[in-house]
């Protein structure tokens, strides 16, 4: 890796003010300061902070890679910046542009200060470019990491949110399913429903699929599995909320629901459940 020469460092340190200004102008040119998610002052503060950290890193770390101890502060700053951008909903190139837009001002500066020695200029440009590239890649990597964290957390929350087992009546449980059914969710749903059946000693479980957008062969298979498991435990299962489109799909796919009781809506299913438990509803 090319070493940064003392002349470059001096030039950087002397022209920090000019660099900051040029950088801000460049960022403004790319429309970064027009973003409503972040004020121009906030962006200005970030550029000023980072430039200081960059100069410090270059001075202490020299040509060593950015994994060096000298860059710890700059790395920490970028990590924090990427995370906040990810949470604010910025795109990755937007975030990376924060670093890459510093290239032009830096190059202009070096060209101006080292114009008397073309060989040194080329070498130093290469060195500074390498550092900036690494910083930019680091930013994108941490941006992606925080985005993935957000997605993972949301997935977990979704899994827990969407599987409530409710008691409709003494001995009647209902499970309103919402969202697409995959194997993982079916597993969670099946487990929580079966456990509640044991806990409450309910003889009838109603699975309401009004909130399931589509039923394909795989989803039907998952439903069949759940119904079979419920039957093995000694309880009965009714599937409700079969919308016309879903009924049509099931017929088109030629799926055999093997004697599963299906109802158009939850009310019908509850009525059937009450009838089976020997109860009837009368007007007071």
């Amino acid at each position: 890796m090319a070493e940064l020469q003392q002349r470059t460092l001096d030039a950087l340190q002397k022209n920090e003010g000019w660099l900051l200004q040029a950088w801000n102008v460049d960022l403004a040119g790319s429309g970064a300061d027009q973003d409503r998610r972040m004020s121009a002052e906030e962006l200005g503060q970030q550029t000023a902070d980072f430039l200081q950290l960059l100069v410090k890193g270059v001075r202490q770390g020299g040509g060593a890679g950015i994994t060096d101890e000298a860059w710890a502060a700059a790395r920490g700053f970028l990590e924090k910046l990427s995370r906040s951008r990810a949470l604010q909903g910025f795109e990755s190139q937007h975030t990376a542009n924060f670093i890459f837009s510093l290239k032009r001002p830096l190059f202009t500066l070096l060209q101006r200060d080292l114009s008397d020695d073309p060989r040194l200029l080329a070498e130093q440009l290469w060195a500074i470019s390498e550092i900036l590239d690494m910083l930019g890649l680091f930013t994108v990597a941490s941006f992606q990491k925080s985005r993935e964290e957000v997605i993972r957390r949301q997935q977990e929350e979704l899994l827990e949110l969407s599987t409530p087992v409710v008691k409709l009546w003494d001995g009647v449980l209902a499970l309103p399913m919402i969202g697409t059914l995959d194997s993982q969710r079916t597993q969670v749903v099946m487990e929580s429903l079966l456990e509640r059946i044991v806990e409450t000693g309910s003889e009838i479980a109603i699975i309401d699929i009004t909130g399931v957008p589509t039923v394909d062969t795989l989803v039907a298979q998952h439903l069949l599995k759940t119904v079979t498991a419920i039957r093995l435990m000694g309880a009965d299962c009714i599937i409700s909320g079969v919308r016309p489109q879903i009924a049509q799909t099931i017929v088109h796919l030629g799926l055999d629901l093997q004697g599963i009781v299906t109802k158009a809506n939850l009310a019908d299913a509850l009525a059937l459940a009450l009838k089976r438990t020997g109860l009837s509803v009368v007007k007071a």
């Binding site: 599995k225 039957r231 093995l232």
Partner: peptide, 27 residues
């Protein structure tokens, strides 16, 4: 057949053993 535990029911279903002719009850 009575008193099958949830884990057992899930295992049997995954194994493809749906015990078609067997009557079941909770307890």
């Amino acid at each position: 057949l009575v008193g099958m535990q949830p884990e057992v029911a899930i295992t049997l279903v995954e194994l493809g053993l749906t015990l078609p002719g067997v009557s079941t009850a909770l307890d």
